[in-house]
Amino acid sequence: MREMVDVTPSDSLSGVDPATGAADAAPTRVLKPNDVLQHARDKALVERAVGGDLEAFNEIVLLYQDYLFALVVRVVRDRDSAADAVQEALFSCYRNLDRFRGDSFRSWLTRIALNAATDVLRYRKRRPADPYPEWEDDAWQPPAGEEASPERSAMKRHTQRVLSEALAEITSDQRKAIVMYDVEGFDYQEIADITGVSLGTVKSRIHRGRLALRDLLGKNMELLRE
């Protein structure tokens, strides 16, 4: 029986809301009512998409494309490569929708997208031409609010830039784990499931990654303390 749950897509689904990400970051997995509804909605959409309903799949794309792009661009550090990786991930998802088993479609999709991102990183490692072109691109910095002073917004941009550069320096495994935990709000167990490593490895990657970030930031840590 097809289960239809009418849930308006929330901002938290896109994963770009840092506040939501921080709030979801719990050490143990507890399914919240919102998660249950989200899973039910996703399953219903997947069932329709498997049946050949393109609109249902495009609805899935609408729900997750911002989140996927934001996640992948943090991992690969290049918007064009990230867009290609997300496109590949969605192609793969569409081709293999009938293979989706499990509760969380978001986790499944995230896994595919991260695999696509990993492939981009591997390709780049083999052919390092322009490793991080995004560093020179300020276009993807958020527009400053009207209330923000120019000095303050400039400082904020500088801080974010410094932090982004430091993030780019740590290992990709640590970066993926930190982004998924701190930014996207996955818990340890979900990250372990998505990346296919043990819970202890996930925790270790996150903690060691933060220590590495602190070492890399050095004197720039002052910017973050403010």
């Binding site: 896109s14 994963g15 770009v16 840092p18 990400g21 921080a22 393109l54 799949f57 495009n58 794309v61 609408l62 494309q65 911002d66 996927l68 792009f69 934001a70 661009v73 943090r74 918007r79 064009d80 990230a82 867009a83 997300v86 496109q87 969605l90 569409y94 993807w140 910095q141 958020p142 974010q160 932090l163 982004s164 993030l167 930190i178 982004v179 701190d182 930014v183 970030l213």
Partner: peptide
Amino acid sequence: VAQLPAAPRSRDFRF
């Protein structure tokens, strides 16, 4: 890290 801005996507991925 949690407050790092999300990059807006560069294209629409709908099929």
